[in-house]
């Protein structure tokens, strides 16, 4: 019984994940995701600017949090997605897992960069400096470097199929390392006693902050999923086109 249901579910999954099938079902998701993210952004921005009070501690700068926190969350969510895809590449050798990994890496780098920039713009009025070597910011910066390394590795390979497997190994090595990095940076941070008088994880946030924060986080996440989907579709198309181009070159060489 269980065996049968398992084969059915794996068939169901492998059908969905087949490149051709993927192109068909994902086409139906583009417009709903796009509209949903536009609505969520509109609502979230309205809350962020017109319907939320200034924080009693942070003042108006709390509004930076509404773009900072979603980006910081996505910087980690994206790595998680890449790590899961890397397992898909190495264990099931699934081409769509490769495509998912490749599509996610530049997005992850972009969202991490935005998290860093907004964090530092929040830090200037709050801490009095653009850059504080605090635990979160330092770990995020290291995560950004890891993203850059992954993108650089993708780009140095000519054979993208081989690249996917090698990048998958690095992605998983990074995934194992990220908790260690986080732990070591936190330890280093307590060692040097930074002059932080406010911690973002400190006092519990009131509901007036939670609503815009959640809406904006949802909006950015939906946008991320949409962009990821579009980039995956582009990559599938590109691979198809690359194959045709190879065939064309081969034909021309034979003809010549």
């Amino acid at each position: 019984m269980t065996d049968q249901s398992e084969t059915i579910s794996s068939n169901w999954f492998s059908q969905l994940a087949h490149p051709g099938m993927f192109m068909r079902w994902s086409a139906y998701l583009i417009w709903p995701l796009g509209l949903l993210s536009i609505v969520l952004f509109a609502v979230g921005l309205w809350f962020a600017f017109f319907h939320s009070p200034a924080d009693y501690q942070m003042g108006e700068t709390v509004r930076i949090m509404y773009v900072h926190v979603p980006n910081a969350w996505l910087s980690q969510f994206c790595y998680g997605l890449m790590a899961v895809s890397a397992v898909g590449t190495l264990v099931w050798r699934h081409p769509m897992a490769d495509v998912s990994m490749k599509a996610a890496a530049p997005l992850g780098a972009a969202f991490t960069a935005m998290a860093l920039v907004t964090g530092s713009l929040w830090g200037r009025p709050t801490w009095g400096t653009f850059w504080e070597w605090d635990g979160r910011m330092t770990s995020t910066l290291i995560l950004f470097l890891i993203y850059l390394g992954l993108i650089a590795l993708w780009r140095t390979f000519e054979d993208q199929l081989r690249a996917a497997k090698v990048v998958a190994v690095l992605t998983l090595v990074g995934a194992v390392n990220i908790p260690i990095i986080k732990f070591s940076v936190d330890w280093w941070n307590t060692l040097h006693q930074p002059s932080t008088f406010f911690r973002a994880d400190g006092p519990k946030a009131p509901a007036s902050i939670i609503t815009p924060l959640l809406t904006m986080t949802l909006a950015f996440t939906v946008l991320f999923l949409l962009l990821h989907l579009l980039r995956m579709r582009t990559e599938v198309t590109k691979r198809k086109a690359d194959r045709l181009e190879h065939l064309k070159i081969a034909r021309q060489q034979k003809g010549a």
Partner: peptide
């Protein structure tokens, strides 16, 4: 690990250090 990842690349010697450095940060800290 970085050397193994980049062994088949012509520019492996350039890229491997970039891969190692962020991951080596905990070792430097401790």
């Amino acid at each position: 690990v970085a050397a193994a990842l980049s062994v088949s690349l012509k520019r492996g010697a350039v890229i491997a250090p970039i891969l190692v450095m962020p991951l080596a940060i905990p070792a430097v800290i401790f």
